[in-house]
């Protein structure tokens, strides 16, 4: 038989252990909560381009690895850019060429297309205020654009980095990285509008095609 005193003592000890566990869990939650991991989802909400499209039939191949791309620029940050970049590339090519076809795989491309474009993500980098000693969050997305002729020959592998930043120090890390990533994706439209038809290999190829058509 345990005496009343011993019972009270053991109950006191049990409650002390329980309080210690609760405090321990709280401390763990506080520490893990301050760990700074970021999971950012970019929604597909990008506008159409206002540009005069060039008379051209182009196929834009957006493979599933591109359309579902989740970037892991460092071990504490993931950015789901798949849906966003799919839309921004589609919108951009709809504005750039008169007849754009969007395909999931290069296998579906036929010779009726004048130009075949296959973008892929090479790297995504993020810089936060603790890295750059400025009050800005920065995101770089580096693309490789595999550009092919109508018969599938590779014309060029064009390296295209895009950049976005946001300077709102009062925002949470997730919101700031999300905003910088959206700016970087908007830069895809700006960069391609300015540069795509100035890529020397594309310019040369289209010029030769136009010459062949006139002959």
């Amino acid at each position: 038989m345990i005496s009343d005193y011993a019972k009270i003592k053991s109950l006191g000890f049990a409650s002390h252990v329980r309080v210690s566990r609760v405090v321990g869990v709280c401390i763990f939650l506080v520490i893990s909560g301050c760990g700074g991991s970021s999971n950012v989802q970019i929604a597909a909400d990008f506008p159409m381009l206002i540009t005069k499209p060039i008379e051209l039939k182009a196929a834009l191949v957006l493979e599933s690895s591109f359309s579902n791309y989740v970037a892991t620029p460092n071990k504490t940050t993931t950015i789901d850019i798949g849906a966003g970049q799919k839309q921004v590339w589609k919108n951009t090519f709809t504005g750039l060429v008169s007849d754009a076809t969007f395909l999931d795989s290069i296998e579906f491309v036929d010779e009726s297309h004048d130009l075949i474009v296959v973008p892929s993500v090479v790297d995504v980098q993020v810089s936060v205020p603790s890295d750059n000693y400025l009050s800005i969050y920065e995101v770089w997305i580096k693309y490789n654009i595999d550009i092919r002729s109508s018969n599938g020959d590779n014309l060029d592998n064009w390296y295209m980095p895009v950049y976005g930043k946001t300077a709102n120090a009062s925002w949470s890390k997730n919101r700031a990285i999300g905003s910088a990533t959206e700016m970087a994706l908007r830069d895809v439209g700006a960069k391609l509008s300015l540069d795509f038809f100035r890529i020397p290999s594309v310019q040369r190829y289209l010029k030769n095609r136009a010459l062949e058509d006139t002959q």
């Binding site: 990008f46 506008p47 159409m48 381009l49 206002i50 540009t51 005069k52 700016m183 908007r186 830069d187 439209g189 700006a190 960069k191 509008s193 300015l194």
Partner: peptide, 25 residues
């Protein structure tokens, strides 16, 4: 006006703005 007012493309001075206004769209 996308993408003509993005950081990369926004006109910094009036000559560039005049050039943009020559684009009918």
């Amino acid at each position: 006006l996308y993408p003509w007012l993005e950081p990369r493309t926004a006109p910094k001075a009036l000559p560039r703005m005049r050039r943009l206004m020559q684009e009918p769209l």
